[in-house]
Amino acid sequence: MAKIIDAKEAVALIKDGDCLMVGGFGLVGCPLTIVNELSQSHAKDLTIISNNLGEPGKGLGVLVLQKRVKKAIGSYFTSNPDVVQANQKGELEIQLLPQGTLAEAIRAGGAGIGGFYTPTGVGTKLAEGKERKLINGKEYLFEPSLRADVALIRAYKADRLGNLIYRKSSRNFNPMMATAAATVIAEVDEIVDVGALSAEEIVTPHLFVDYLTVKGECRL
């Protein structure tokens, strides 16, 4: 059964040097209560796997300004000029992946797959340094899967077991991240009794989820 903790206790599970997965497409589907609490803590030298690093001064963008992110793996960092600046100053290493490759690397990591071959990016700058393989006459690039120490994800509702449902387009990377980290913390609007969610609608079964945190008032 998932343990219910508050945002402070959630953040206490994150150590210096940890690799985190953080859900969200921009700020949509990002666990902002936990991320905001993280910005009040001291964990540093973090590697963050997330599609973006928030927006200027918002969400994960705060951690960038605090220089606590050592490396970021994602698909779209240009929407936050602070990230671009930190990278140019050499303070923040960035690994850029096509969005579909990022999503699949996380899915594979959670499914026990070591890596996969994708045709996306063949012949482009993002293919540099990657193993190439011809399969049935078509060229593919090898991409290793991704896993993390802690995943911070956002769901709509949980039941007390930790079964999760999502809301609209805030689902994005969250269900894969729920499968791909040693410790998974889900921030939710509401925790309901077991049985209140239909077995047909549950997207993330509870075996993936270690902790639940109820969303607080978000400071944005």
Partner: peptide
């Protein structure tokens, strides 16, 4: 060059 999103896919 820090953003590609879904363009290549």
């Amino acid at each position: 060059v820090l953003g590609v999103g879904g363009a290549m896919d």
